[in-house]
């Protein structure tokens, strides 16, 4: 009990997922649950043990979601939702990708979105040949006040310049446009 009382509990229990693209298997079979945690200490133990995002092979993802929410559009908590999306050119992978992904994780774990933290579902980093992506997923794309509040805090926390614009897309729009980027519903 004394040891437990010294650990720093998080507001939510989180689940880290790993996706490795293997075209011979169904999409869901390529998704693996890595670990669950609900303390700051357990997060760092896990983070220190796994590869940095920039060291993953092309086609791999990490996803961190609240327990009970699957990292896919089809989940009930995601299907009306959307994502704030960062697209990172390959030449910035080794400078910026790991920093931006860690900042994203710290936003989630620190519960930094105030009264809208309940809207946040999780985040995903996709490692791809041309451009990597980091996305913060929220549960209700029509909740403009919540989505905009989260986007403004997120952009500030990432340290992006005021000239940089990031967009939010509804998952329903992304799903309908699998070969090109969906239109931005909101920008900050």
């Amino acid at each position: 009990p004394e040891v437990l009382s010294k650990l720093h509990l998080l507001q939510y229990r989180w689940v880290l997922w790993f996706f490795k693209n293997d075209r011979s298997r169904a999409w869901q079979d390529n998704l693996q649950l890595v670990a669950k945690f609900n303390t700051v200490e357990d997060f760092w133990a896990l983070y220190s043990h796994i590869k940095l995002a920039s060291k993953l092979s092309s086609g791999c993802d990490y996803a961190l979601f609240k327990e009970g929410i699957q990292p896919m559009w089809e989940d009930n908590r995601n299907k009306q939702g959307g994502r704030w999306l960062l697209s990172i050119a390959k030449q910035h992978r080794h400078i910026e990708l790991d920093r931006l992904w860690l900042e994203t994780l710290l936003c989630l774990l620190g519960d930094c979105f105030e009264e809208y933290s309940g809207e946040v579902c999780g985040a995903v980093v996709n490692i791809r040949t041309k451009r990597d992506k980091i996305a913060l997923w929220t549960s209700e794309a029509e909740n403009k006040a919540g989505v905009m509040f989260i986007g403004q805090i997120y952009k500030e926390r990432l340290g992006l310049s005021t000239k940089t614009v990031i967009g939010y897309q509804a998952h329903t729009d992304t799903a309908a446009k699998s070969n090109s980027l969906a239109k931005n519903k909101f920008v900050v």
């Binding site: 040891v3 983070y47 936003c107 620190g110 519960d111 930094c112």
Partner: peptide, 20 residues
């Protein structure tokens, strides 16, 4: 109460010795 932690606090804990 709510467990909100700012980034500096979270980062500090990364390097704290384990409480064992």
């Amino acid at each position: 109460g709510k467990k909100q932690y700012d980034r500096e606090f979270l980062l500090d804990i990364q390097f704290m010795p384990a409480c064992i």
